[in-house]
Write a protein that binds this DNA or RNA. Structure first.
Lengths: 232, 232
DNA sequence: GGCGGCGTATGGTCTGACCATACTGTGGTC
DNA sequence: GACCACAGTATGGTCAGACCATACGCCGCC
């Protein structure tokens, strides 16, 4: 018979489903605690090992964070860290060559352009201040590593400014993935003067609220920082 | 002292790191098998439980796929299923309200526009055939569920056509996340005539290689299918 | 009132066992 | 010789129970 062999649901999958159901039904949100592993195991009639495997999955996906010991912060607490999960995913798939740096860089270009367009004219004084600080730190950076760190801070602030957390998290993960390439690129350039000019242009376009100028500036910036498409 | 408490590396994290190292050093790629859980446990001097937790993480990230039994396909095999991982991530974070449907829909709009621009003029005859088939199936669909299924097939083909696997996988995950909303939207519309007109316009723009017409058509299409930004 | 130490709840790890699954090789049968 | 049934076995899936490490809460002493 041509049936797809229906894989029986594994115990830990059931645990995940039950926890998901509780989140929906009981209206649990970020900051709330889940029952302890032993208690969950008893409630769901599975072994603690299965509960732990489910916890690993949820932790990997960035929705819980575990802490040993006692007190309000101990145990499994619901969190929201999608960026870490995305970064792990990208790193592993790039390592496996099932994603190329070209695709990662391309995606980054797309998101950065979109984000800067939506950030233009929307920045609060506090956000503008953060952008200026990042620029200042870049100017004072002594090493390529340091420069790239603050460069990432600048671009991440722009992404947050766009008002889309999914894109901001994705940006963060993409940045982390290309980090070593970025350091190498900066080192190859020798000077960061041109990059700093780009940043100032981007900042001005955001402050004055000119989406197209911002998009053009960031496109030039990324092309300058990553000429060609990079290796792999 | 203001030290960050350095959390000691957990055993399963070490296992993941070692497996990652093997992938890099030994040049393992999709399709290759990993040693069995018992063997890995002995090699890395950890318990099988820790190895299994690492396996769960890798499976969650879409990098391995486990199968019991014997033979070439048994055991943990390296795979590449980023879409499933992304879909799980989105579903959980939306459930936790740490991501909103607005952000998901917005991201989808961005990717679809980018993809259709890059797909225009690049489609092989086989791809065009797939698009036509999807359109045909949509026309013959008897229920909203069926329509949405083939609609997703159409849009996913466009995403694959763009030549960026990361974006294609993300699209697939985004589609899966909004699926129930899509079904509801189609049901509310009553007729799918307007949506089908959109699809034909998009197809033509891709075939004739007109990126801007394609982008405009898809923007209108998504706005029509998801008026407003949807709930939540 | 402050402070030190013990109790304890929590995650982290290990061991060893057993079950379910699916191939592999063996031996018998026609 | 070809085919087929069945035992063997390697693999993941699950369980039970133990012990360790950590960090807070509580209690009693000073």
């Amino acid at each position: 018979m041509g049936w797809e062999p229906v894989r029986r649901t594994r115990a830990f999958e059931d645990v995940i489903a039950q926890i998901e159901r509780r989140i929906a039904d009981d209206g649990l949100t970020v900051g709330d605690r889940l029952p302890g592993e032993r208690q969950l195991a008893e409630q769901l009639q599975v072994s603690r090992a299965s509960v732990r495997e489910a916890m690993r999955v949820l932790e990997t996906l960035g929705v819980i964070s575990s802490q040993a010991g006692r007190g309000p912060d101990a145990g499994a607490v619901l969190t929201s860290r999608p960026a870490g999960a995305l970064a792990d995913l990208l790193r592993l798939h790039v390592g496996l060559s099932s994603l190329s740096m070209r695709e990662v860089a391309e995606t980054r270009m797309m998101i950065e352009q979109w984000a800067v367009r939506h950030a233009a004219g929307r920045a609060s004084p506090a956000h503008l201040e953060r952008l200026r600080e990042a620029i200042g730190r870049m100017e004072r950076a002594a090493t390529p590593e340091e420069f790239v760190l603050h460069d990432a801070e600048f671009h991440l602030t722009v992404a947050e400014l766009s008002g889309n957390r999914l894109l901001a998290a994705t940006m963060q993960a993409l940045r982390a993935t290309v980090r070593t390439y970025a350091v190498r690129a900066v080192r190859r350039l020798g000077t960061t003067d041109l990059l700093m000019d780009d940043h100032r242009k981007i900042y001005e376009a955001i402050e004055t609220g000119d989406p197209e100028a911002a998009a053009t500036a960031i496109a030039g910036h990324l092309a300058r920082a990553y000429p060609g498409d990079g290796p792999s």
